[in-house]
Simulated assay, not measured.
Amino acid sequence: MVQPKPKNLTREQKEAKVEEFADALEEYDVIGILDMQSLPARQLQEIESEIEEFADIKMSRKTLMNIALDNAEKDGIDELDTDEAMQPAFIFSKKDPFQLYSLIQDNQTSAAADGGEIAPNDIEIPEGDTGIGPGPMLGKLQGAGAQVQVDDGSIHVQDPAVIVEAGEEITADDAEILNQLGIEPLQIGLDLVVAYSDGEIFTSEELDIDTDAYREDIESAAAAGFNLAVNAGVVNETTAPAIISEAAQKARNLAISEGLPEEETIEEAVSYAASAAEAVESEVDLEAAKEAEEDDESEEPEEEASEDSDDEESEEEE
């Protein structure tokens, strides 16, 4: 783990450290408090080299950090509490707090297990030559559920084997096997517990957002707002092109459907009328209509003859 700085600092060294903190507090827009309690020194060195382009880590005794914070003149900086961390350190950056948190999460490094940790995901032993000679490790691998055999003087894993499932505790025996095989199953990174920016304090819970989901929500809200504005006829720089385009299309469709002889729509209007005529023709049986008309014409004389006959009969009776 990261060890605290030696406590036997001279007065001049303490003053120099406070001044170093004060300069950084003045220079950087974003100041965070890290908890270094669970971070091994080797992993810290790796992480520092990865984040040096966007952040700077400074640490010392908590009392010196608090003195620097008390003397800082930024509004609200006094709310930045080093007591939020077991072993605090400053992190300074010119990224905004959310970017800083995301970048920290992206710059984690692997670490070996000591036993007692909870597996973050399934821990698998890969297939192949372990490079370990036959001995106690052979039985330990078999006990962990791996199919193994000795070949050319070393232990070979026949098939990939999960020896610890996600959420389960890594035992001391599991840790020994993993360390022997050079497998580092843990992900270690900086723990940003609180950050200050422009007079506001952000906790890690507030900074831990799903950026992809957040972006989708923003895009969905923007699209819904745009559609509402267009449908409501709210004209502005963003909606004007869509509203004008929609109005032009409606006018064009009306001219076509009503057969208005406009130069831009005459071809479509004629085509529309022809299609409408074809649709009507397809629904009407012209042959049947013609036959029905002929039948009506042939029945009319018979009806007249029948009327004349009735008139003659009535005259005779008289």
Rank of each mutant, 00 (worst) to 15 (best):
A41S: 08
T203I: 04
T239P: 00
V230K: 00
G131K: 14
E294G: 02
A16C: 00
D311S: 10
F90A: 00
I266Q: 12
S306Q: 12
D81P: 06
V284I: 15
Q99E: 14
I125M: 03
E294C: 02
L260K: 12
I118S: 08
Q147D: 14
P120T: 07
E206V: 13
L69W: 06
A292M: 13
A55K: 05
A55G: 10
D106S: 15
D106G: 09
P261W: 11
G116C: 02
I118R: 05
E316Y: 10
T238A: 14
F226S: 01
D81Y: 06
Y196T: 02
K95H: 08
A229S: 05
T130M: 04
N71W: 07
D173W: 09
E184S: 11
D29W: 09
T109K: 10
V280F: 09
I155D: 08
A229V: 00
K140I: 01
A41M: 13
I132E: 02
G199H: 02
T238L: 15
I188R: 09
Q3E: 15
E267Y: 00
P4D: 10
P261T: 15
E300C: 02
P120M: 04
V148T: 13
V234Q: 01
Q147Y: 03
I183G: 03
I132P: 07
E313T: 13
G135L: 05
E316L: 11
A277H: 06
V280Q: 12
Q149R: 14
L80V: 07
A222W: 04
A276H: 00
G76Q: 12
E312I: 14
D296R: 15
G131Y: 09
A146H: 01
E278T: 03
A175K: 04
S154R: 11
D174M: 10
E293M: 06
G225S: 12
D35V: 05
A111R: 01
Q45H: 06
E283D: 04
E52L: 12
F54T: 02
E15R: 11
D35T: 04
L178I: 03
D208S: 14
D208A: 13
F92S: 04
E312T: 14
S271F: 03
V284S: 05
I47W: 01
K62D: 11
E293K: 15
D217K: 13
I209G: 02
E84L: 08
G259D: 05
G128P: 13
D35Y: 03
E79N: 15
D173K: 11
A292K: 15
A72D: 14
D295H: 13
I57V: 15
E52F: 15
D35M: 07
S49D: 13
E176W: 10
K250H: 02
A112T: 12
K5Q: 13
L228Q: 08
Q149M: 12
P241N: 03
L9R: 10
T82S: 11
T203W: 07
Q180I: 02
E15K: 10
T130I: 09
V2W: 06
S245E: 11
L181C: 04
D96C: 07
I132H: 02
E20S: 09
D129I: 02
